[in-house]
């Protein structure tokens, strides 16, 4: 009995896999393979790819610096309104990214609540800059990191931290020497999710940072505009983005698994 395959699980699982994989197969089938090398050597493609990789990585770094402490605050401390704060942190998950972009403009734009002050004090405004791309991506991607790290923190055994504390370690030392190594896999998983989300970010980026080749035009933006006139070019660009991200994720995974073993 035990070894029999439960069809109730296998059938939906296979359907689910087909649902996720078939569109990808569609891209591969329709890709204009003969013109692929020529399209790949176009400087605009490489520029957009470089910009995508740089901004997604910087955005992930920003998310790590701000998001891990935020996750710790949500998981390890108790203060009034903590549950509300936790719900608010996940807002970018449900907010349509285009609306997120408009919200960022209303706060950080040239006439925004904070942005107008930035403009008058430093003569600096975020929209239409590469820094603006990083801000938009970090805004959309950070909840993925916070949720992953918070989950890891809640699952971690608090007794190790308590033992360290009874031995005289300060709260920050406990965080740095005990908590962080304990939840490292969760942090890495969160960072990967965060990076992938930032890499594919479209709506908030084009709304907040605009679209200008070499400065704010990331791969998803290039794909969208190529779709208007040259669907084949859009397929090529999508495949490039897919291939590069899969390569990087596989390479990183091997390294982590190797380090852990």
């Amino acid at each position: 009995m035990r070894s029999r395959v439960p069809w109730l699980l296998v059938v939906p699982a296979v359907l689910g896999m087909a649902f996720l994989v078939l569109p990808l197969a569609g891209l591969l089938v329709r890709a204009p393979w003969s013109t692929l090398p020529q399209r790949l050597s176009e400087p605009q493609v490489l520029e957009a790819l470089r910009l995508s990789l740089v901004t997604a990585s910087v955005a992930t770094a920003v998310c790590l610096v701000l998001g891990v402490p935020l996750a710790w605050l949500l998981a390890r401390t108790d203060f009034p309104g903590r549950r509300l704060l936790r719900a608010l942190v996940t807002v970018p998950l449900v907010l349509p990214p285009v609306v997120g972009g408009v919200a960022l403009l209303l706060v950080l734009g040239r006439r925004g609540l904070v942005g107008q002050w930035l403009e008058s004090a430093f003569g600096f405004s975020l929209p239409f800059t590469t820094a603006g791309v990083v801000v938009a991506e970090a805004f959309v991607a950070m909840p993925f990191l916070v949720i992953a790290v918070e989950g890891a923190l809640r699952a971690a055994d608090v007794r190790y931290e308590e033992a360290a504390a009874t031995l005289g370690a300060s709260r920050f030392t406990v965080f740095r020497r005990v908590t962080l190594p304990l939840v490292a896999p969760g942090v890495l998983a969160g960072a990967v999710l965060c990076w992938a989300r930032a890499l594919g970010e479209f709506g908030a980026t084009i709304t907040f940072a605009g679209n200008f080749p070499g400065r704010t035009q990331t791969m998803p933006l290039a794909v969208y505009l190529a779709l208007e006139t040259e669907p084949e070019a859009a397929i090529v660009l999508s495949l490039v983005l897919l291939a590069v991200s899969v390569l990087i994720l596989v390479a990183l995974r091997d390294r982590w698994v190797g380090a852990a073993a």
Binding site: G210, P213, T216, Q217, L221
Partner: peptide
């Protein structure tokens, strides 16, 4: 003209 953005 050098625009700051080319919108969709």
């Amino acid at each position: 003209v050098t625009p700051v953005t080319l919108e969709q």
